[in-house]
């Protein structure tokens, strides 16, 4: 018993490693651009990678861990992007931008989380492909509403944001997303969410409050999608409803299923690989857009759980002491 615990313990990183690793990453994210070692183009690509990691991680919570399928994730991203952009452009004075930015991102995330309720409630009664329809419909309604609001530019889009997103902010939010999702997944809440994927009915019958967990999962997922939207809006400095269409949602699906469902490492891998692949394929012009859908179909046929499917690299799992406190007990005795 003890042996098997220690075996699974190997390679897991404790809290200190996380703190140090995160600080090191943040320092690099500041140093590399500031020192000029990293050119603007590379920074831009890395920021896209980071934003896509946040989107993929958050979508994986619902699709991979909970086993529901949300296929309208771009709708949440849109809510976050517009709310954050409106806050920095129209609500607060422009000069306050850098100070207000984190607040704007969080507000965008919260607005998206609120929108997440729109999808969470129908999910109590509908599952599977019907829920897929609900989420797609949500995506289309968001897009349609944005196209109809002239105050945010309607179909022409919204602009005027300063370029407030930088590599440090993106890396910071990637780390926050990763840490929060990891802590949630390795807890009672996370186990309940996974139980919904495994067998929702049985979950209900072991006292798992599935409606509440669905609200948590959808809102948390939407929150981070909203934050990613805010980062995206302040990177591109221009957003329009079409950027958040089903095509965007499909991109996120490709990244989730490429990297692997139910895996944090998979999400990071999938988002990075796909973003870089699409960047490399730029010379193909229009044909580039055929790659994603084709990849998705092939993945579903040949490896539906993705590269990392349901597996986690050890250094992303909490140590036993972090998860349950066993380690502390063991050391004391």
């Amino acid at each position: 018993m003890k042996k098997s615990n220690q075996a699974s313990e190997r390679g897991r990183l404790g809290g200190w490693y996380w703190t140090l690793g995160s600080l090191a990453l943040l320092a690099l994210a500041w140093l590399l651009p500031a020192s000029g070692i990293m050119n603007l183009y590379l920074q831009q690509v890395l920021m896209y990678v980071g934003i896509n990691i946040i989107l993929t991680l958050s979508l994986n919570l619902v699709n991979g861990y909970m086993g529901e399928f949300s296929v309208g994730h771009a709708g949440f991203m849109a809510v976050g992007a517009y709310v954050a952009a409106i806050l920095t452009v129209a609500v607060f004075p422009r000069a306050w931008g850098p100070v207000v930015f984190p607040l704007a991102l969080i507000m965008g995330g919260l607005a998206a989380a609120l929108a997440g309720l729109v999808v969470a409630f129908p999910s109590f009664r509908t599952r599977g492909d019907y829920l897929a329809i609900v989420t797609l419909a949500f995506n289309m309604i968001v897009k349609s509403i944005l196209e109809n609001i002239n105050a945010v530019g309607g179909p022409r889009g919204y602009m005027g944001m300063s370029k407030l997103s930088n590599l440090v902010w993106v890396v910071f939010w990637v780390l926050v997303t990763l840490l929060v999702l990891r802590n949630v997944i390795y807890s009672n809440l996370g186990r309940g969410i996974i139980a919904i994927r495994e067998d929702e009915l049985a979950a209900n019958l072991v006292s798992v409050n599935t409606p509440r967990l669905k609200i948590y999962a959808f809102c948390l997922s939407a929150f981070f999608a909203g934050v990613a939207g805010g980062l995206y809006a302040h990177l591109l400095q221009f957003i329009n409803p079409r950027s958040f269409s089903i095509l965007k949602s499909t991109d996120m699906l490709v990244m989730v299923y490429l990297g692997g469902i139910g895996s944090l490492a998979g999400s990071i891998l999938g988002a990075s690989l796909y973003t870089i692949l699409m960047e490399l394929l730029r010379p193909l012009e229009l044909w580039r857009w055929v790659v994603g859908p084709l990849l998705l179909v092939l993945l579903m046929i040949f490896r539906p759980t993705g590269i990392m499917g349901l597996k986690e690299v050890r250094w992303l799992q909490p140590t036993a002491s972090e998860e349950t406190g066993w380690g502390k007990v063991a050391r004391r005795s």
């Binding site: 009672n188 186990r191 309940g192 996974i194 139980a195 495994e198 067998d199 009915l201 049985a202 979950a203 019958l205 072991v206 006292s207 798992v208 409050n209 349901l310």
Partner: peptide
Amino acid sequence: IRLFKDMSVLDNVRLGAFA
């Protein structure tokens, strides 16, 4: 039998105490 098949034996039991 309706277990949570891809979850660990321990997690299955822990889920029994969810509430």
